[in-house]
């Protein structure tokens, strides 16, 4: 297996790589664990101006709540502010956006990877230009038509918009993956009498999962983390998690409940952890097993 070859390294090199990876994992994960720990403190500890070590010991937490840990942030976010509703909305949006993006994207990406006419190139270029458009400008432009058509504020509208503005990325990424799948594979199927669609259905779909899963991960994260679109196009009751979290942060007028936001972020990341662990076989072994032999 290629994995075995690629990993057969000498000890010093291995140590170097592991050391580097160790440093990176700390850099990547430390802020999150700090947040996880801090989410059980009060705001004046987690964002302590007096001494950052208060976040470790919970000095003010003890004074204000009587214990070194408090679930006040979670209680506030979930019970007082009804964060569950936002989580449910996010679930709908992310699942729909990922599914629709991938369906559209695999079809488009496959076509772009298999057509050799010049217009293919130009479609790819135009898609890039589309992607260059700043989202805030697009969203400001949607507002008036959406209000006039009376489709503003609904989850379905945001889903369609997110799918559309995600398409350039999706087709580009999937096209790169399809390019790596040898043309002979589907062309020989077509020689055997399959139509193009049958070849796609029976030959390409079984081997495309590594690319689709990776692209799906990004589509998912885009929908999950989106703020520009969801903040402007959803009404309050249909809000997804990120605008909801933003509303905890306060404004000029109003002191925020920053600890609600912190607790909400931690609880929003927990399902992702489960998701990645659940999909890790697909991501790790799926990629390896499904990989196309060159």
């Amino acid at each position: 297996m290629s994995e075995a070859l690629a990993t057969r390294r000498s000890l010093p090199l291995r140590a170097l790589l592991m050391g580097f990876l160790f440093l990176w994992l700390i850099a990547a994960a430390f802020p999150f664990f700090w947040t996880l720990w801090g989410s059980f403190k009060v705001q004046s500890d987690f964002f302590s101006i007096q001494d950052w070590r208060n976040a470790l010991w919970g000095t003010r937490t003890v004074i204000e709540t009587g214990g070194a840990f408090t679930g006040a942030g979670y209680e506030g976010a979930w019970i007082q502010e009804g964060f569950g509703r936002a989580v449910f909305n996010t679930l709908i949006v992310t699942v729909c956006v990922t599914a629709i993006s991938l369906t559209f994207g695999t079809l488009g990406g496959y076509a772009l990877s298999r057509s050799s006419y010049n217009y293919t190139f130009w479609i790819l270029m135009v898609a890039l230009v589309f992607r260059a458009m700043p989202h805030i400008t697009l969203v400001s432009g949607y507002l008036l038509p959406f209000f006039e058509l009376n489709i503003w504020g609904y989850l379905s509208t945001s889903i369609v918009v997110l799918v559309a503005i995600n398409q350039p990325f999706t087709i580009w990424m999937l096209r790169s993956f399809f390019m790596n799948i040898p043309k002979d594979l589907d062309e020989s199927a077509m020689v055997d009498g399959c139509t193009r669609f049958q070849a796609f259905r029976y030959v390409i779909i079984p081997v495309m999962w590594p690319g689709v899963i990776t692209t799906g991960l990004f589509s998912f994260l885009l929908a999950y983390n989106d703020f520009a679109v969801t903040a402007m196009l959803l009404s309050k009751e249909n809000q997804t998690m990120i605008p909801k979290i933003a509303s905890f942060l306060g404004s000029t007028q109003q002191e925020g409940n920053v600890m609600f936001a912190v607790a909400a972020v931690v609880s929003a990341t927990a399902p992702l952890f489960v998701l990645v662990l659940f999909f890790q076989r697909q991501i790790v072994s799926g990629l390896t097993a499904g990989a196309v032999k060159g």
């Binding site: 400001s140 507002l143 933003a246």
Partner: peptide, 9 residues
């Protein structure tokens, strides 16, 4: 619909 983004919409 009470939201911080009220001015923008």
């Amino acid at each position: 619909n009470l939201t911080k983004d009220h001015r923008d919409i």
